[in-house]
Design a protein around this nucleic acid. Structure first.
Lengths: 207, 207
DNA sequence: GTCTATAGACTGATAGAC
DNA sequence: GTCTATCAGTCTATAGAC
């Protein structure tokens, strides 16, 4: 990626792009801490060490900054996702993926805060969060269906598959929130317990 | 309750108390929609049909109103909780309890939004939410331990019990959030699937 | 008990100098 | 590209009339 475009090399845009990344990174932590409504562009600008006007110059508006933040979150999430595994292996590796998430508290805090805030239809991130959940559930459903097709687990109806992937998502979200509220929460063990028991249930056909 | 104190009967405080209840009820929906940071006392006052000064007269400050809202939420939650069942039956009835919660979207929205917002230690509701989770987990742990003692399920270590009650809590929170984002989510079926499978695992000793 | 008026701080956003 | 200065609007909270 660092070849043809030249955006990461020396050039007229270099400092501007650095600044942009710096602002987005800071905005992630501030929106994570105070939510979108509670986090002001002045607070973000102060932490970066620039004026709030500079920030608006880069992103046009506060909502423009939110869009950039959500895109960056999306980018980093996709980057950390599992692309080399399919079927049941995808679920088997969820505990380690979740554990890796804990290294970046800000990102988890951002998603937890924004997802809850955006449950209201009027929130600027409402559509984004809805789509994100739909996509995530669909990905999980595809992998579970693959496991069924491969004979790794007993057959499941589409309705049952939806319940299963919603439960997996709920566990990841809920345990994440509990870890934010109490860092002594054993995230890895909890998710492992859930996944192991669930795969056992899928395999035996005792649903 | 409506006898000796006279607070619900005719008297000098009657209208004041009615107003207070009305304000708290409206504040629950507004804080649920916009969060504590995003929901202003002016928005609440407008919906009630009074000036914002009246509201501050009653609760002293915005944080005072939040305290009243959290107390009311606590009160209603305790009221709807299961006090007549113990041990495994407590878990067996969680699906119906959760389903009943869906009749009051505002209350669920409030808790989801505030819990996420309050994950930041600086939030005025941080201590309240932390205590609430600790208490809730302890209650669940007591019921599970009772089930163990009664021989309803195979033995569990304290660490295993903590994981189990955290998973139950995570499922309830996570499925609630998904329902807020997409009301077609089958909350009852999801929670029933989880509880049935979990009780089966506890009973068989295959953990 | 509720109102209007107002203080004082903070909000997002814009204009224009450098 | 970043700044200062400033705008209009909103915020929480208080004072004082009725």
């Amino acid at each position: 990626m660092s070849g043809s475009t030249g955006t990461t090399a020396r050039g007229p845009y270099r400092t501007g792009i650095r600044r942009r990344e710096q602002i987005v990174a800071t905005a992630i932590t501030v929106f994570g801490e105070y939510g979108f409504a509670g986090g002001s562009i002045r607070t973000i600008a102060d932490r970066v060490g620039v004026s709030h006007a500079t920030l608006l110059q880069h992103f046009g508006s506060k909502e423009g900054l939110l869009t950039a933040v959500l895109q960056e979150w999306d980018r980093r999430t996709v980057e950390a996702s599992l692309t080399d595994v399919a079927g049941l292996d995808y679920f088997r590796r969820l505990p380690e993926v979740m554990t890796a998430h804990l290294n970046n508290r800000g990102l988890l805090e951002l998603f937890t805060t924004i997802a809850a805030e955006a449950s209201s239809p009027a929130h600027p991130a409402h559509a984004f969060i809805q789509r994100r959940y739909t996509d995530n559930l669909a990905t999980l459903a595809t992998h579970l269906q693959q496991a069924v097709d491969a004979g790794e687990v007993a057959p499941l109806t589409p309705a049952e598959i939806e319940i299963e992937v919603r439960l997996v998502t709920a566990v990841l979200d809920g345990i994440g929130l509990q870890w934010l509220l109490d860092s002594s929460t054993d995230v890895t063990a909890s998710v492992e317990t859930y996944i192991n028991r669930t795969i056992a249930a899928w395999s035996s056909g005792h649903r």
